[in-house]
């Protein structure tokens, strides 16, 4: 069971075999997605028709490459925009929340903390739907009473950002608060003692200490936003972010260009996440 307990060779090797099968299971879908990005065929399936870069670079129908497919790269740009907005909002609020929960003492703090965690329990679809209902209710009210149509409250990118902001904030708060909790308050006191004001102390001592967590939270937030589907689906308008476009393509019948997008997405997120993992330690990568 552990190295110091003698075990039969059969037991050990069957354990190893199990682990091998498990990791094969884990990696199989990712590997096939990557491999079929290079298949010289209209379909991402066997038989293998030979290696090609066409699904990246070709400008000819029917094998229109990613870099000549305006719908795809438009939606990538849209996703970038959404993810950036969401990240800025979520990280800013997360820093604020971390200070509130780790430093302030007030009545009802634990209740408020529980409420702050709620978005983790609400399924993404429900979160999206409920925000859709509320914003539409408000928009309808303005429309009915004052005949003002507030475009921002109708399904569209603004609502997508709001919906993602709603649950990503919680995750960012957990990451930043965990780091702030491990901060030694006497460092800040030393700064005060050396003549800094409270705000200066926070700016020069505490925030630099929090920086790894802030970067980590930003990376996670960006990834989660970029890859979010459930909440986005309910709130999306005419401009569709990448995941929505991919989903539509999938239902129409996928061509290997989807694999190309997926491969790039995989590479980007793994590089980002791995970088973050090794930069800030592995604690913050969970959820």
């Amino acid at each position: 069971m552990i190295p110091s307990i003698p075990q039969s060779a059969l037991f050990k090797s069957s354990f190893r075999l199990y682990a091998f099968i498990f990791f094969a299971f884990l990696m199989a879908p990712l590997v096939v997605v990557a491999v079929f990005a290079f298949n010289d065929s209209m379909f991402p399936s066997l038989p293998w028709h030979g290696f090609t870069w066409d699904w990246f670079f070709s400008d000819q129908e029917p094998m229109l490459g990613l870099f000549h497919d305006p719908q795809l790269y438009q939606s990538i740009a849209t996703s970038f925009l959404v993810a950036t907005c969401t990240t800025v909002l979520a990280v800013a609020l997360a820093i604020n929340n971390a200070f509130l929960f780790e430093r302030a003492t007030f009545r009802g703090k634990s209740v408020l903390y529980m409420l702050m965690l709620l978005p983790l329990v609400i399924p993404g679809v429900i979160l999206g739907v409920s925000i859709l209902i509320m914003s539409s209710s408000i928009a309808n009210y303005f429309d009915d009473v004052w005949a003002i149509d507030i475009e921002l409250l109708r399904p569209g990118l603004a609502l997508v950002v709001i919906g993602q902001f709603a649950f990503i904030t919680t995750i960012c708060t957990l990451i930043v608060a965990a780091r702030l909790r491990s901060f030694d308050l006497s460092l800040e006191e030393a700064a005060l003692n050396l003549g800094a004001s409270k705000l200066q102390a926070i700016r020069t001592i505490t925030i630099p200490y929090l920086l790894p967590a802030i970067i980590g939270a930003a990376v996670i937030s960006f990834l989660m936003s970029f890859e979010n589907f459930n909440t986005t689906l309910m709130l999306v308008g005419s401009d569709s972010p990448l995941t929505i476009t991919l989903y539509d393509r999938l239902r129409e019948g996928a061509t290997p260009v989807i694999n190309v997008v997926s491969l790039l997405l995989m590479l980007a997120s793994v590089v980002l996440a791995l970088g973050n993992y090794f930069l800030t330690g592995r604690k913050s990568t969970v959820k």
Binding site: E227, L250, S269
Partner: peptide, 11 residues
């Protein structure tokens, strides 16, 4: 770290 959509597509 890979989008759920991509994973499902792989399957």
């Amino acid at each position: 770290w890979v989008s759920e959509l991509v994973r499902t597509y792989g399957w």
